[in-house]
C-alpha cells in the first residue's frame, strides 16, 4: 500500500496551546498516573493482609518525604480526573458545548482540583498537628 504520498494532517506541535487541549492530555496523564496509584493501593491493602509488621513498613514508606510527595501528586490527580470527568459527563449528557462554556468549565476544573488538593492536605496536616 503506497502511503508515502498521502497528505498528512498538521502535526500537534503546530497548534497554539489552549486550555482545552491542556486539560484533555492532563486527563489522560492523570489517568495513567492514578493507575500507578492503584498499584500502591494494592500494595497497601496487601501489606495489611500480610500482617502488622508489613503494614507498618507500608505506612512509614507513605509517611516518608517521597511517599508524601507521591500522595500529594495522586491527590491532585484524583481531584483533577474527578472534576474533569464530571465535565465529560456533562458533555455526554449533551450540555456545555459552547466555546465560552468549554473554557469556563475548564478553568473551573483547574481551580477546583487545586483548591480541593490544598483543602485535603490542610485538613490532613491539621489532624497530624492536632494529634
Amino acid at each position: 500500500m503506497a502511503t508515502g504520498e498521502r497528505p498528512l494532517s498538521p502535526h500537534l506541535q503546530v497548534y497554539r496551546w489552549q486550555i482545552t487541549m491542556l486539560l484533555s492530555i492532563t486527563h489522560r496523564i492523570t489517568g495513567v498516573g492514578l493507575s500507578v496509584g492503584a498499584l500502591v493501593l494494592t500494595y497497601w491493602l496487601a501489606a495489611a493482609a500480610y500482617g502488622p509488621g508489613a503494614f507498618e513498613r507500608a505506612q512509614s514508606f507513605l509517611n516518608s518525604w517521597f511517599g508524601i510527595l507521591l500522595l500529594l501528586g495522586w491527590t491532585f490527580a484524583i481531584f483533577f480526573h474527578l472534576c474533569n470527568g464530571i465535565r465529560h459527563l456533562f458533555w455526554d449528557a449533551g450540555s456545555g458545548f459552547e466555546m465560552s462554556q468549554v473554557r469556563a468549565s475548564g478553568w473551573a476544573v483547574i481551580i477546583a482540583s487545586v483548591g480541593l488538593t490544598v483543602l485535603v492536605w490542610a485538613i490532613g496536616f491539621g489532624m497530624m498537628g492536632g494529634a
Binding site: A48, P52, E56, Q59, N63, I123, G124, M127, M128
Partner: peptide, 10 residues
C-alpha cells in the same frame, strides 16, 4: 484516607 494516614494495624 485522610484519617487513616497515621494509623497502626490495629
Amino acid at each position: 484516607a485522610i484519617s487513616l494516614g497515621g494509623l497502626d494495624w490495629v
